[in-house]
Design a protein around this nucleic acid. Structure first.
Lengths: 243, 243
DNA sequence: CGGGCAATTGACTCTCATCAAACTGCGTGG
DNA sequence: CCACGCAGTTTGATGAGAGTCAATTGCCCG
């Protein structure tokens, strides 16, 4: 896979034009390709000396555990997303990272990351910008947990994933393949798995979306947008401020 | 106020040693001092060309509104905190910023910010590190909204504020002055104001904390920590990776 | 064929929102 | 100096949304 085709380049390319040099630097970042099996954590809260990764294929989740045994998934990462950038900046991982499926990811050692920032500041800015965009997503999740009911939360979540997946060519207007179990959805949306099931049934019976056999299919996209009060503004920022 | 005494320098100084040059650059960042009255927003979602601010005194909240009229406060900022960094990086504000009290803040134009990154990379790294720490806090809030009940949330919130305020000398082991109304607490914790009141009463009757007349007083700090499952790890990261 | 995991459904419970109504402290203006 | 209004706090009563417990179904895979 060349950098031009990599989901990461594709995502950045949707917002800025990258020079040949920058594309080749991107390609070099993809040299340390690794695979990880589903379910075994890549990184644990409290670990130091973390590497960052760029996800090439498969899905990942970032989560935190509470001592009472429950867990909260902070976000899912899809191809083209950066993993563990904050953990690198803070020197210690502040959350756990678990592959949801078999994944391929390119390890980016701190040194390479710093050198990239130095050698191609435009790429550095792009990475920072992507990180800010991810943070905006986390904020939106927080708003959902605080002020949306279960139906709205689910609708919003499915729509956000749709927008993100479209950017890397993994979704169409009709829907997308989604490898998440109802337990994972529950941990992400702050609900119980049982309630997730009921909410999905409701949305299906309302004729809005179906989520069955790992496939999300929109029946009434606009209706879903209306229900979720979904506004893509937080995803559709202008590209990074390029030096 | 010299940079040495500013809450921002004080906060950074708790994690790294700053050179005289760096302190003087910091001081220059504080030149455009402005004041804002409580209740009138400094910045609105969707606005472009945002400036960033360093908060010198007073309290601020960042929030988002939903079309159904409810609002979710994402975080409060206290003296020493940066405001609107993400809005600058994304070129568009993705949330609103409202002073809770009369505040003093130093405006930091994008240009100055970039120049600082360029001229004193260590300060740039420090700012980035502080931003990552703030993001870790947002993540912790998200976990609270998703997986903690009202009592735990309130306890955790009061403890986090305590830790943050201590860092800039605004709290003692006994407690701190807190200008937040129960409505603000409600919007931050994803609760109704009525329920906030009941929860505060409960915590008081359990002999853990009191929050009355704008003063938070700990009666049983350890008991509160236990109830909240509070772990300062997400606040106590090592200092920034200094180039 | 049996084990195991995810999805599904029903019955019951509990936390928290909502509505309503006092009550407080406080600044303003008559 | 007091009446008034207002914003914030406090308390009670009721109901809805979501959790928990439990049982069943469907399906994949050894």
């Amino acid at each position: 896979m060349t950098a031009l085709q990599s989901p990461f380049a594709r995502k950045l390319g949707a917002f800025v034009t990258l020079s040949t040099l920058e594309l080749s630097v991107l390609e070099r970042l993809h040299s340390r390709r690794r695979t990880f099996v589903a379910g075994r954590d890549i990184s644990h809260e409290g670990q130091t000396d973390q590497a960052a990764y760029i996800l090439a294929s498969g899905w990942v989740c970032s989560y935190k555990l509470l001592t009472n045994g429950s867990r909260q998934i902070v976000d899912f990462q899809i191809p083209g997303d950066f993993l563990g950038l904050r953990s690198v900046l803070l020197r210690t991982a502040d959350h756990n990272i678990e592959p949801v499926t078999l994944i391929e990811a390119s390890e980016v050692p701190v040194k390479d990351l710093m050198e990239t920032f130095d050698a191609t500041p435009r790429l550095g800015a792009a990475v920072l910008w992507a990180a800010s965009r991810d943070e905006a997503m986390v904020v939106e999740h927080l708003v959902g947990l605080g002020r949306r009911d279960a139906r709205e939360r689910m609708a919003h979540f499915l729509l956000e994933l749709s927008a993100r997946l479209k950017l890397v060519g993994l979704a169409t207007a009709d829907g997308y393949a989604c490898p998440l179990s109802q337990y994972l959805l529950a941990d992400a949306l702050g609900l119980s798995a049982v309630h997730v099931n009921r909410v999905l049934r409701e949305l299906r019976e309302m004729g809005l979306v179906t989520f069955q056999n790992g496939q999300v299919t929109f029946q009434d996209f606009d209706g879903l947008v209306a229900l979720a009060d979904f506004d893509t503004a937080y995803l559709d920022h202008e590209g990074p401020l390029m030096p």
